[in-house]
Amino acid sequence: MTTNILILCTHNSARSVLDEGMLNHWAQKLGKDVRAYSAGSTPSGRINPFALEALSNAGIATEGYRSKNWDEFAADGAPQMRVVITVCDSAAAEECPYWPGSPVQMHWGYADPSNAPGGDEGKRQAFELTRQAIGYRMLQLLALPLDTLSNAELQQALISIQQS
Rank of each mutant, 00 (worst) to 15 (best):
T2P: 13
T2E: 11
T3G: 01
N4M: 03
N4I: 03
I5S: 02
I5H: 06
I7C: 11
L8C: 08
N12C: 04
S13C: 10
R15E: 03
D19V: 10
D19A: 13
M22N: 04
M22G: 00
Q28E: 15
K32V: 04
R35C: 06
Y37W: 14
S38Q: 08
G40K: 11
S41E: 03
T42A: 15
S44I: 02
R46K: 14
I47H: 07
P49S: 15
P49V: 13
S56T: 11
E63N: 13
Y65A: 08
Y65W: 10
Y65L: 07
D71T: 08
A78R: 02
Q80S: 04
Q80G: 00
M81E: 00
R82P: 00
R82G: 00
R82F: 00
V83L: 08
A92G: 03
A92M: 01
C96S: 04
Y98I: 10
W99Y: 11
W99N: 00
P100E: 12
P100M: 13
G101Q: 05
P103K: 07
Q105C: 11
M106V: 05
W108N: 01
W108A: 05
W108D: 00
G109R: 06
G109V: 01
Y110A: 04
S114D: 13
G118M: 12
G119W: 09
K123H: 07
R124P: 01
R124D: 06
A126P: 08
E128W: 12
T130G: 13
T130D: 09
T130L: 10
M138W: 05
L139N: 12
L141G: 04
L144C: 13
L144K: 11
L146D: 08
D147H: 15
T148G: 04
L149V: 12
L149Q: 10
N151F: 05
N151A: 14
A152M: 11
A152D: 14
Q156V: 06
L158R: 03
I159A: 12
S160H: 14
S160D: 15
I161W: 12
S164K: 09
